[in-house]
Amino acid sequence: MFGRRRREESPARAEEIEQAEEIEQAGQAERVPARESGPWDSGEPYSERERVDLGGMRLPVDPGFEVQLNLAGDQIVGAVVMADESALQVHAFAAPKRNGIWAEVRDELAEGVKSAGGTAEEREGPFGVELAAEVPADGVAQPVRYIGVDGPRWFLRAVISGRAARDAGAAATLESVIRDIVVVRGDEPMAPKEAIELRLPPEARQAMEQQAPEGDVPDLNPFQRGPEIAEIR
């Protein structure tokens, strides 16, 4: 039936229909299948839970979590979640539209760890291939897990240290945080590996403005500077 109707169309109309079908098929081939868990892009549906709005990242929080911020000068570039003698450090970076960068970043991290006298090896984890490392700190090798997730035009790097680097039960809590992070990439052009800038949540900025004397710069930071673990260069 469909073939007969198409033959009855004018040649120009038939050509338009064929072109439209080709474009639709190409779009379906390039479309990324829906994921079952995050981290999420802000443009896709994601589960509801309490999150701190840091601008370029919406970070899940639960009772008992302590949140710290990573600073590069005056710029907020990452966050750290402290829980149960463990730490989860997360940074979001710009990435190419079509190509992931985790494999490249993983090689850079492994090289950096080994250059510092540590060890690093790849292994399969809940988010795919990750890097299991032993990083020297104060003369003692500390276990660290490097996790990377390639998203649409962004890359999320997560670093788990402390008890959760070895304890599966403690790790599950921080892994659930990673799964519910929402990355807000934005539409502005950014170079690959450029940090997606974060900012204080609206309620924290409002508190700072309310407590600041008129004409004075407030000296209030509801977060602390988090530990730095192997930056991307």
Rank of each mutant, 00 (worst) to 15 (best):
I17N: 06
V140S: 00
E36G: 07
V182P: 08
E9N: 04
P96Y: 03
Q89D: 05
N70K: 08
N99A: 10
Q210M: 13
E36C: 03
V217A: 12
A120I: 08
R225P: 00
E124M: 12
A137T: 04
V129T: 11
V135T: 03
V135W: 09
E44C: 10
E44V: 14
E18T: 11
L174F: 02
L220N: 00
M57P: 11
S10G: 15
R163I: 03
A92D: 05
Q224F: 13
S47V: 13
M82E: 15
D167H: 12
F93N: 07
S176C: 01
R205T: 12
D84M: 07
V177I: 15
P201C: 08
A191N: 11
R233A: 05
P201F: 06
Y46E: 02
Q75D: 14
P192G: 06
D74V: 02
E36S: 09
E209A: 15
P45D: 00
P136K: 09
G112N: 12
A103Q: 05
E24D: 14
I232P: 12
I76F: 09
P136I: 07
S115R: 13
I178F: 02
E214N: 03
G148Y: 01
E121R: 14
E15T: 08
A120F: 02
E194D: 10
P213Y: 04
D187V: 06
R31I: 06
R31Q: 12
S42A: 11
R35W: 01
A195D: 09
R199I: 02
R51T: 04
N99D: 10
L69T: 05
E85Y: 04
S42K: 01
P60L: 07
E36M: 12
M208S: 04
V183K: 00
A230Y: 12
E124V: 15
I147H: 05
P213V: 00
R106L: 02
P152C: 04
V113Y: 03
R179E: 10
S42H: 01
V140T: 08
V77P: 14
P136Q: 09
E66C: 03
L59D: 08
V135H: 11
Q19K: 12
D180G: 00
G112Y: 03
V80S: 14
F2T: 08
R35A: 15
M1N: 09
G38R: 03
I232L: 15
R233E: 10
G78W: 05
E66A: 11
N221I: 09
P126G: 06
V144F: 05
A168W: 00
V61L: 02
S47C: 07
V61K: 03
E8N: 10
R4H: 10
V61P: 00
D107H: 13
A72E: 13
Q211N: 07
F155K: 00
G64K: 03
R166M: 15
A172W: 03
Q210L: 15
A230V: 08
A133S: 07
R98W: 11
G169D: 09
M190I: 06
E30W: 02
V32Y: 09
F223A: 12
L88N: 01
I196P: 07
D41E: 00
V217T: 12
R166I: 09
